[in-house]
Nucleic acid binder design. Structure first.
Lengths: 125, 125
DNA sequence: ATATTACTTAGCTATTTAGCTAATAAGATT
DNA sequence: AATCTTATTAGCTAAATAGCTAAGTAATAT
């Protein structure tokens, strides 16, 4: 389970527009890093593979993007893997899955408690 | 649907420990504001009903807590209602529900895309 | 009418953040 | 070996943030 500290880090990481966009970019851009393992040579959506490639999509300096990626990594919502010269980036889907579950649990518990207390359901306006 | 700006505000609101704890407090503390409407006089879990009551649970000044509550409100994850002297606070469950759905969609799409591309499923290690 | 309660606003300070450039490190290429 | 590519680190600045106290507003109670 994600403890509070981890959640705070994730929220902080995603609270900045630049980092949010980088995350989106990494998440939707492709998983060349994975692909390399499975089908070497196959290149799809090479948008978000490495730091400088990500940086090309932003009007910020490479060190700025690098620092943001570091923060996303420390929040554990992306993983990075150095291969030779480059740092390959992947979304950490398991953490996002956990986060989704956290929010879902919150909502479900709320609904259940409400039903228990008031004896109504959400469908009843 | 929550656009990026709204999401950024929510993440920012939840990225600070004090605000996170206030949110937790409000979320789990009780919904006296709602109860007042339904069953006037019934008091349950009066922990998070109003600003000063929330503030009692923190070692920060009332203005500090007030400002945090304002930010949670502007992120739209709580609602506030002034009744006479007091400001009653409730969690905005619908926004949390939307957020849960966003994350769930992200995860589901990821899994589907992966299956489409690689022809495997998550259960296959 | 006055005092009290509940909350917000104003104005301040210390700290953190997000950006930059320049310098450094470490592979890859020639 | 020398150079180029990729990325990080260091050191800087402007702006934002999170806390505070004091003062102000508005409703309630005396």
């Amino acid at each position: 389970m994600l403890d509070m500290e981890r959640k705070l880090k994730i929220f902080k990481a995603l609270s900045n527009q630049t980092r949010f966009m980088i995350f989106k970019n990494v998440f939707t851009g492709g998983y060349t890093c994975s692909l390399d393992k499975v089908q070497p040579g196959v290149k799809v959506n090479p948008i978000a593979t490495c730091v400088s490639t990500v940086a090309e999509h932003f009007n910020f300096s490479l060190p700025t993007i690098s620092a943001h990626i570091k923060e996303l990594k420390e929040a554990n919502i992306i993983t990075v893997e150095k291969k030779g010269n480059k740092v390959y980036i992947e979304p950490n889907i398991e953490i996002i899955r956990e986060l989704a579950e956290c929010f879902q649990t919150l909502v479900t518990n709320f609904d259940n408690n409400r039903e228990l207390f008031f004896g109504d359901t959400l469908s009843v306006g």
